[in-house]
Design a protein around this nucleic acid. Structure first.
Length: 601
RNA sequence: GCCGACGUAGCUCAGCGGUAGAGCAGGUGUUUCGUAAACACCAGGCCGAGGGUUCGAAUCCCCCCGUCGGCUCCA
């Protein structure tokens, strides 16, 4: 049974088949658990699920049994037969079968009579549509069991959800399973450990990240690039404290609206202090430290600001969901007449920066006024329009997320899609009608009178933690040269080549190439293997011939062997690849989006 | 927070009432080597924390903490 009524009509053939697979799975479950109670079983992206109330917890072995039973039902090729039943009759029908969730579903829909589908021995409340018969299901596989609240409400019973996937052909199923396996191989938590990028520690606390030297390198490169681009774009960068007195958070409204996400207060000299969950109030204090003329605006204050938020224990996930993270935050204070242009500039900067990291596939959402909001509807409309016009001007298509804005203003959410087609929320641009009011912000207009500035809150990478997590998975740890923690490793073949290896390393380092010498008493093969596993872009093998010729034998992490290259030539090549932030190891021209004329080094 | 699974050496895992194991990583030797793992030896553990059951607990039970898959949440 699928609950999203109006979406039924739009169900694609694939969704229809998956939905039918959910029915077949339900019958199989009923066969194993005659007392099972059924909730809903919709198709989802890549598959389907069905929620059940069962007398005991399912085990992985159960999945195998259910799959087998499903295969039997498929072999029977039983037709899906649609019929209808008057509401009252349907209610008593499901009451007889002890199906309280179905009764609740019927009570929630307006139709009379209601749709009923039967396939083989299984009868379910359902609008359909379905495939003609159970034999028409594509190849399927059950994937996992998980808890899920009835109707997604944490105060209602916890049901057991079985996830499955189904595809038109065996090849597509295999490709999907391969994609899952690839996602696992790319898991940033695993790569983070293997590549020595970061760690978390029980003894310290969940969701708190330690950046190791290599991860630190990576992060520093990103931060340096970020700072450079922001100075170029007319931002001023600031540093502000990580804690503030309760009074500040009272004024900002965080204690009223956000307290459950804040770390508990600490007491100093009888005053309550809170660790910051956001940077905005601090940037506002900087704005307020002087009187501003309309001529000074816009003022753009940026900070790589570390914040701490209480996240419930069950939601933490590697770098993607943490309790302490650094936002690439900025607040723009501007006049109403400047706002559209400012938004446009933010979006333009965002597109440019994301493209430098190789992200060029996005989905953009403009989120409008929710039911609960502050400020004037007219201001909301104007601001929302400004957001839409700015996105239009950039030439990017977007979807409107009706009512999805924050209570304090409309926003643009910008999700990037990674190499595996998964999308990640990173960038956000948000209007704020709330804080300027609460802090009574003003600037002096050309009429000599105080005016309220507009305030825009924006983060492009989102948080460095999450962005790095996404980046690790995007590249499976094989970062573009400009980002790689080590860009080259020099591999002396025998001890007598150590001196020359050091010399090579010095030459590269002098050209600002991040380089390491593998001086271990290991065989060449072992050193190459380790560099390969560390995904170092360039391996420079040096032996007698190279020392003699002033060259290095260049091997790429792709496995390609370029043979002996004069050092100057190699350095020039790598330098230009770094400068253009190319995604290629041999061609400086492979860049995504508009090339930046930036002189990175 | 909720449902379920899981925490054993730095990592990956075996052992599942009777004296803690392997591979890799690490240390020490020997090997000086041309494009993905040389060989030998050594060391390494309060079996996540606390409490219980038992003659005896890594193993069974309870409770914390953490991790994983979901749900809920996500200014």
């Amino acid at each position: 049974m699928f609950s999203g009524g109006q979406k039924m009509a739009e169900m694609s053939d694939l969704e229809r088949m998956r939905h039918s697979a959910a029915h077949v799975m339900a019958e199989a479950v009923l066969h194993l658990f005659p007392e099972a109670k059924f909730a809903i079983g919709p198709p989802i992206e890549d598959g389907f699920y069905y929620d059940f109330d069962l007398p005991r917890s399912l085990t992985p072995e159960d999945l195998g049994r259910i799959e087998q039973k499903m295969a039997e039902i498929v072999r029977l090729n039983a037709p899906f037969v649609r019929s209808t039943m008057p509401r009252e009759q349907a209610i008593s029908f499901f009451r007889d079968r002890n199906q309280p969730y179905k009764i609740e579903l019927i009570e929630g829909i307006d139709e009379d009579p209601v749709g009923i589908y039967q396939s083989n021995t299984f009868v379910d409340l359902c609008r359909g549509p379905h495939v003609p018969s159970t034999g028409k299901l594509g190849p399927f596989k059950l994937l996992s069991v998980a808890g899920a609240y009835w109707r997604g409400d944490e105060h209602r019973p916890m049901l057991q959800r079985i996830y499955g996937t189904a595809w038109p052909t065996r090849e597509e199923l295999d490709a999907y399973l391969e994609r899952l396996a690839e996602a696992q191989r790319r898991d940033h938590r695993r790569l983070g450990r293997e590549l020595g990028l970061f760690s978390v520690h029980d003894e310290v606390g969940a969701g708190l990240i330690f950046w190791h030297p290599r991860g630190g390198r990576l992060r520093t490169v990103i931060e340096d690039y970020w700072r450079k681009r922001h100075y170029q774009a007319g931002y001023e960068l600031v540093y502000t404290p990580h804690v503030g007195k309760a009074n500040l958070w009272e004024t900002s409204g965080h204690l009223g609206f956000y307290r459950e996400n804040m770390f508990a207060p600490m007491d100093l000299d009888g005053q309550e202090y809170f660790i910051r969950p956001m940077n905005c109030p601090f940037h506002i204090k900087i704005y307020q430290s002087a009187v501003h003329s309309y001529r000074e605006l816009p003022i753009r204050l940026g900070e790589l600001g570390t914040v701490y938020r209480y996240e419930r224990p069950g939601v933490l996930h590697g770098l993607l969901r943490v309790r302490g993270f650094t936002q690439d935050d900025a607040h723009i204070f501007c006049r109403p007449d400047q706002v559209e242009d400012e938004i446009f500039r933010v979006l333009e900067l965002n597109r440019s920066i994301l493209s430098a990291f190789g992200f060029s596939d996005y989905r953009v959402y403009v989120a409008t006024r929710p039911d609960k909001y502050v400020g004037e509807p007219a201001d909301w409309d104007r601001a929302t329009l400004a957001l839409q016009r700015a996105v239009d001007r950039l030439g990017i298509s977007y979807e409107v997320d009706e009512g999805g804005g924050a209570f304090y203003g409309p926003k643009i959410d910008w999700k990037i899609r990674d190499a595996l087609g998964r999308s990640w929320q990173c960038s956000t641009v948000q209007f704020d009608f709330n804080l300027p009011e609460r802090f009574d912000l003003s600037y002096v207009g050309d009429d000599g009178r105080p005016h309220r500035p507009y305030m825009v809150h924006r983060a492009l990478l989102g948080s460095l933690e999450r962005f790095l997590g996404v980046l690790i998975e995007q590249y499976a740890g094989a970062f573009p040269v400009w980002l790689a923690p080590y860009q080259a490793v020099v591999i002396p073949i025998a001890d007598r080549h150590l001196l020359y290896a050091e010399e090579v390393a010095h030459r590269l380092a002098a050209a600002e190439i991040r380089v390491d010498v593998d001086a271990r008493r290991e065989k060449l093969n072992a050193k190459i293997r380790d560099a390969q596993l560390q995904k170092v872009p360039y391996m420079l093998v040096v032996g007698d011939a190279e020392a003699q010729n002033g060259t290095a034998a260049v091997r790429l992490r792709s496995g390609e062997n370029l043979g002996q290259r004069p050092l100057d030539e190699f350095i020039a090549l790598v330098s230009s690849i770094i400068r253009t932030r190319s995604l290629s190891l041999t061609d400086p021209g492979v860049v995504v989006g508009e090339p930046q004329a930036a002189g990175a080094r």
